[in-house]
Amino acid sequence: MTDLIKERAISIIVNNKPDVLARIAGTFSARGFNIESISANVTRNPVITKIIITTLSTQETIDKIIKQLNRLVDVLDARKISRSQVCRREMILARLSMPEDRQAAVEELVGAHSGKVVSRESGSAILEFTGDKDTIEEVLNRLEALGMEDLTRTGTVFMERGKP
């Protein structure tokens, strides 16, 4: 089903230059497509950046976007991430108010999803969770119920299994 619109992920290796992100974003916006999530950081080589983008699109569109990305001078390699063979993770930081009566429920949630309490102040705490999209969604539902005050969520990162 190539005309099915679903979440697709692209890995892009680029020169670490000031306008490269604008060029990549422009490639998406020029076709009217939204970037769902983005994650970017320098690699072990500081002049090279790796960017991972997820977007909702058809197979055909993603193929065209990848061709166009590869045409950009500062893109060294852009390719589709094959979804069946990857680990994927997102991370969230969430701030909750922590009245006495909620402590136990929070501890239980942190324990159940290998979360962490990264900061605790009087009456409030910051929690950290990592996981795949489904896990994160589930944790977020629980956090909402516990009165989450603020949330930061990273883009998705991927790692292909068994490749050098």
Partner: peptide, 14 residues
């Protein structure tokens, strides 16, 4: 101008 012409040049430099 590099911003303005980003989508109508093959590449541009500042």
């Amino acid at each position: 101008i590099t911003g303005i012409t980003r989508t109508c040049t093959k590449h541009n430099f500042l």
